[in-house]
Design a protein around this nucleic acid. Structure first.
Lengths: 229, 229
DNA sequence: GTCTATAACTGGATAGAC
DNA sequence: GTCTATCCAGTTATAGAC
């Protein structure tokens, strides 16, 4: 037998492009109807790729969902840690608290208009996962919790006279407010008769930090010293 | 032909009991995996009733989910309104704010231990729905929003110098914290190294009211008057 | 890397007996 | 009211051609 020539691959499209197309449309569709509410057929037909390519690239639907959840984690955590590192922590200073809360929230909202737009479906998906026990370990336990602990430690340093448990509860409530705001459910639009809009993330960010700073600095202290304005 | 005797119905069980069994198991299963994540076969086999009875009682899976969501709404709203009516609203009084926030939260947690337990699956399901656009109209727009508006009005009366929009944002953040706490995801257990437990609803309630009172009373005011402790 | 074809199964819904 | 039996559309996953 002569040496068989290598088969020329068909390569009608770039593999990386296909891979990304699947992830993007999966992210968008999963964010609306959740894992079980979306079929691979819906994803592949929206992404205009062949059904079989999902298993080629991701192995299974479950793995695809995992990859959608995990894809943006590292960039997000790195940004949070970087912003945290820039903050000088001054005890009993409400401005420090504001900076800390803002540094945690900013990376998931985005800084440039393009980034804000690109992260939208991911934010909505994270909001869905955050209030569910299912998939909790994949995203939060494995990836986001270590960074969240850093922020809890920093907040505890900034508020040294507040009980650690109160800080933990407060941070948990802050997370709850945050993920609910990320969901953009338009509930606040109705409750405010249109005066507030859940899709105005810049305003939501300002309001949330203002609200949460008051909550954190209002927590009871062991000593009688009050936070400086 | 002689008059045919009425056929004796088989009636192996009470219809109302079957109806309730389906609702209870549907509530529990939906609260974990959502609407699409649960099959009617899972529900009926858990409830130990026949598959066909779901369509007999509810017409469709979608109607079943609706009924699960709506079943507890009226009792909940009535309790919230009743508690609200008992509160004397004193302007710029943080104790009034605490009473208002507590009155809103108490009915969904429950007062007796039995009630707390009975409402658990419903709370978890509401938490799931609250961070999703889907089904939002069925539960919140149609049923809970009118009562939420009453509480916003009451909070605005209690804090007359705070901008109405700030009150709306603050209440929205409060709702976000609340529903996230209701989900009992155990995230706070991890973040606090077990010091706080998401299934300790009594403690969550105390902490959340304390946190949110600080947030509401810390909001900026048009006049310079501060809230009295 | 892409696509066709299909296997193997599960889903909601219903007709009709009892 | 309850249960059996069934329909069939839709599901994930994969084998194999190109």
């Amino acid at each position: 037998m002569t040496t068989a020539p290598k088969k020329k691959p068909v390569r009608r499209g770039d593999g990386a492009v296909t891979h990304a197309r699947i992830l993007n449309h999966a992210e968008r569709l999963f964010s609306v109807d959740g894992y079980a509410g979306v079929s691979l057929r819906q994803i592949t037909s929206a992404a205009e790729v062949d059904l079989a390519l999902v298993n080629y690239y991701f192995g299974s639907k479950e793995n695809l969902f995992r990859d959608v959840l995990v894809r943006r984690v590292d960039a997000m955590s790195a940004k949070r840690v970087a912003l945290l590192g820039e903050i000088e922590i001054r005890p009993n200073d409400s401005e420090t608290v504001a900076k800390l809360l803002d540094a945690f929230l900013l990376p998931i909202i985005g800084t440039t208009p393009k980034e804000v737009k690109d992260l939208r479906n991911y934010r909505i998906l994270i909001a869905l996962v955050a209030n569910s026990k299912v998939w909790q370990d994949v995203v939060f336990k494995e990836h986001y919790d270590p960074v969240a602990r850093l922020f809890i430690d920093a907040l505890a340093s900034a508020l040294p006279d507040v009980a650690r448990e109160d800080i933990c509860w407060a941070f948990s409530f802050y997370l709850g407010s945050l993920v609910n705001a990320l969901a953009e459910t338009a509930r606040i639009d109705r409750l405010s008769n249109g005066a507030c809009r859940s899709d105005d993330l810049e305003e939501a960010r300002r309001q949330l930090v203002k609200y949460a700073v008051g909550a954190f600095t209002g927590l009871p202290r062991r000593s009688t010293e009050r936070a400086k304005p």
